[in-house]
Design a protein around this nucleic acid. Sequence first.
RNA 1: CGGGCCGGAGUAUGCCGGUAGUACGCGUGCUUUGGGAGCACGUAGACCGAGUUCAAUUCUCGGCGGCCCGACCA
Length: 483
Amino acid sequence: METPSTDKHEQKRITARSEDYSEWYQDVIAAADLAEHSPVKGCMIIKPNGYALWERIQEVLDKAFKKEGVRNAYFPLFIPERLLKREEAHVEGFAPEVAVVTHAGGKKLDEPLVVRPTSETIMYETFSKWVQSYRDLPLLINQWANVVRWELRTRLFLRTTEFLWQEGHTVHATNEEADARARRMLDIYRDLAENYLAIPVIPGIKSESEKFAGADKTYTIEAMMQDGKALQAGTSHNLGQNFAKAFNVSFLDENGERQFGWQTSWGLSTRIIGGLIMTHSDDTGLVLSPRIAPIQAVITTIGRSDEKRAVDKAAEQLAHTLDEAGIRVHVDASDARPGDKFYEWEKKGVPLRLELGPKDIASGSSVLVRRDTGAKETVAASALAKRVQQLLDEIHKSLYDRALAYQKEKTKNVDSWDEFVREIEAGNFVLAHWSGDAEVEKKIKEETGATIRCIPFDQVREDGKCVYSGEASTGRVIFARAY
RNA sequence: CGGGCCGGAGUAUGCCGGUAGUACGCGUGCUUUGGGAGCACGUAGACCGAGUUCAAUUCUCGGCGGCCCGACCA
C-alpha cells in the first residue's frame, strides 16, 4: 500500500488522464469549479463558471438561429400523459425514462403529468392550431429549457437526470424543405463545435436502430474524446409526417387541399460542455477554446504591497485597452502569490495569461503565456491588443488541429473481424463495411460494445463486404464505443 | 438492475477495541510576493440502526448514501 503524500501539491494534483480517465474528467470539473453533484441523485448543480460556458453557447446559437428566422418561445414543463402517448414510436422510446407526477395540490391527479423528456408532443398539440394555411409555413420555433430523463446511470454534463438544452421545432410544406432544414440546423451545430469549441466533428446520419424515437431520419455530429470514445454532440431529426399525423398538424395548400405538415426537431444540450472538457483539457486542468471562453485573457498582477497600487492601476488600464479591442478580459488583483494565481487560472482554462508587475511596468511590456502550450513571450504594451487577438486565433486553430490529428490517427480502416475487435478494444474509431442489416448491428454491439456512430455524409462509395456477415456493402460506416 | 470499491473536520488521509491525529482549506496578526510562502494563534469531524464487548469510529449484520464497471441513453 502506498501511503498518501502529505505534500499539499500532491494532494491538489489532478489525476493523470492515462491512469483513470473518468476520475481525471471529474477532477478537471472540480478544479475549474464548473459543477458538482446535487442532493438529488443524478442531478447536477452547475456553478457560475460552468454556467458562464452555457451562456456563451446560448449566445452563439441564438445569433445563428435568429439569422435563420427561428423565434424563441416557451412551452410548459408538464405534459398530459395522453399527449405523450399519441405517437407510437415516440412513447415506446421514452416510456422507460420519464418522470411522472401523480399527485398535486394534496390530491391524486385525474390524469398523470409527465415531466417533459422533450417537447414534441406538447408543442405539436399547439402547432396544430397555429398552422392553418400554407401561408403560416414554415413555422420555426426554438425553446431554451430543462428536460428530465430518468437514466440509470449519470455523469456530470454527459448524462444527468435533468439537463439544459435548446430544442428547435419546425413545420414545413414539403419533405424536401423539412429535410433541408434538418440538415441546415445540423450544420449550425457543426459550426458551433468546430469554429467556437474547436471540436472536430463527423456529421452524418444515424442508422435505423440509433435514430430518434418518432423520426424518419436522425442526423448527428459525432466527436472523439481523448479516451477514444465517441460523443454525440448534437442531433437533428427529420420527423416526416409522423407527428403531424398524430397531432393533426395540417394546412390548406395553394389548391385548397388539406395536407399534413413535414416536421423537424433538433437539440443541443449541456452535454456539449462535457465534450469541450474531454476534447482539450490536460492534466493541469481545463483548456478552453478562445472563442467560447467567458474570459479570454486574465491579467495577473505581481508585486509587493507597496507596489500594489501602481500595478493595479496599470492592470486596469491594460484591461481597458483589451476590452476596447473586444477581448473578454479579467483582472486578478488579489493578494494571492503569483504562483497561486497562475495555477488557479490554468485550472480554469483561460486561454491567455498576462503577467503584469513592476518589471513589466518599468519596461513598458507584459509577459504573455498560452494555456495550451505554456509558451511565454514578452510583448510591448503598445502591441498587446493586436498580439492577444492574434494568439487567441492561433490557440483556436492549434486546439482544433491537434484534436483533428488525434481523431484521424485513431480512426482505422478495417476489413476483417479480428482487426475490428482489436481496434475497438484499443479505443479507436473504426471505419468498416456494413450491409445495413440491423441484426448485424445488434450483434456487433453485444460482442464489442461498439455502435454505429453514423454513416458520414462524406462517405466514399466503394464496394466491399460487411465486416461481420460478409454481405455486400457499398460504403464504410463509423463504429465506436460511445458515451 | 447485476459486479466491484468506499462512508471520519470543507477536502484528502494515518494509526487504533480505550484522550479521534496529520496535511491542505478557512479566520486573525506579522513578515512575504516574477510558478503552489513562513511563523503564531484560532476554527471544525466518526451516515443510520442492531449485534458482540466492561468499552465500538474501529469487529459483525442490516439499511441508507456515494463512486467505478456493465445494461439503458442525448
